[in-house]
Design a protein around this nucleic acid. Structure first.
Lengths: 236, 236
DNA sequence: AGAAAGCAAGAGCACTGCTCTCTCTTCTGC
DNA sequence: GCAGAAGAGAGAGCAGTGCTCTTGCTTTCT
């Protein structure tokens, strides 16, 4: 071939094999995490699964933590995809309904991917410093939730709140970052609802609501509804 | 000695030594968890710390998980003590203030015992099935929080909410269990505030609020205040 | 006093993450 | 077009892990 091939094909057979092996490792690791959880993830077991020796894995991932970081990003993106799709799908409906639907979609994903949920919202792994690679993927769910508020056709009034200056400053930055034009009380309500959503979900998944309630979904739905109204999202 | 000694002293030197060694092991383990976190807890390292060989530990704890379970109970009780003391101390003050104070006390404990917090509110350890031994210690904080609502001198009205029957049934059982005489909407508000408190705390400790807010305490205080008013707790 | 139970130590097994060396293949610069 | 560089996989090995089993010794019970 005398012609210059396209950027993506100029990389030869070796490079192509490389991404193939890398994804195979990632897939095997994801499968093991889905089954046994992140703590029990063994590099050597993953190596056996993909039919290579453990030391060879180090050509693709610098360490076990590195592999886990890649899985964390995958999990964030999987949840991000799921939430964004649900929120996109409910476009046009009343904001309160959209919020509840989105919350239920997030819960459904979490229930179907318990270990992935734990990976991203559970105890952080010790040496691991949450590299910035994760942050863009990590904020997708939150941004998607915020979009419901942004796209809402007006908000019901909520009680005013005294917000201390240090917090108000953070809130102003945050609103710019997430492109949301609301007052401080509403900002607080959004942040609060956000943390509550995942708090309740973590409680359910980590067994903290064991002897509190039997119908976890009903509780979650009721709580999500309350969150929506605390933000001022309208249900018609 | 011909007399029968008291029950507690009939246990000889060996039994006394046994509880001594047990507490020494527990103390060493707690120290290591406080420093490195639960995941990195090594039975052998603990054994070295207390000056014995690793296999000897098994005379006191059946497994590493068993040791961790003991530490979980200790952590629950430590937090329980702390919260109960704070709540007792604020007796007589307005309920809303008491709630915020209690929340801040819980946060203070969590910040001072990050790894213990992670141990009890983070990802559960895999094989571990949360034996009932933990449940009495585990509910102390929640019960203490509930006591603020119970002892409140009247509650402000909060919006009514439609609670589905399956959830209402759980709520009725729950109210009996925790000895709280309120309506369904208030029950939901309490459960919701409870999960939100720990949700926000977990977010802070696990680094999820990293790029959201700088003054975590201010956010926490504002959120706790909002929780109190969502329950209907009065601030005077 | 003799038997039974409790305790600590040591060796050993199967596993872990990770490093280093060696060989073989693929790619690249002249 | 070919030599040298770079990449990839395998194997051995190190230090560490949880846990078991056997072997002595001490305390307790009968």
């Amino acid at each position: 071939m005398s012609e210059t091939p396209a950027e993506s094909t100029v990389t030869g057979a070796r490079a192509r094999a490389r991404v193939e092996v890398r994804t195979a490792i990632l897939a095997a690791a994801a499968k093991r995490v889905a089954e046994d959880g992140a703590i029990d993830l063994s590099l050597r077991a993953v190596a056996r699964d993909v039919g290579m020796v453990s030391s060879a894995i180090y050509r693709y991932f610098a360490s076990r933590d590195d592999l886990l970081t890649a899985l964390i990003i995958e999990a964030y993106d999987s949840l991000g995809d799921h939430a964004e799709a649900a929120i996109e799908h409910s476009r046009g409906r009343p904001a309160a309904e959209r919020w509840v639907d989105a919350a239920l979609a997030i819960r459904a994903w979490a229930l179907a991917h318990r270990h992935d949920y734990a990976l991203i919202y559970g105890t952080p792994i010790p040496g691991y410093a949450a590299p910035d690679d994760t942050s863009t993927s990590g904020t997708r769910v939150s941004r998607a939730l915020v979009s419901i508020v942004r796209d809402a056709d007006g908000l019901d009034p909520i009680p005013e709140r005294r917000i201390p200056p240090s917090l108000a400053a953070s809130f102003a930055d945050l609103r710019q970052e997430i492109d949301l034009d609301v007052d401080d009380a509403t900002t607080l309500a959004v942040v609060t609802a956000w943390s509550q959503l995942f708090g309740l979900l973590s409680f359910e998944l980590f067994g903290q609501t064991r002897n509190v309630v039997t119908d976890d979904e009903a509780l979650f739905r009721a709580a999500a509804t309350a969150m929506a109204s605390s933000i001022g999202l309208r249900d018609e």
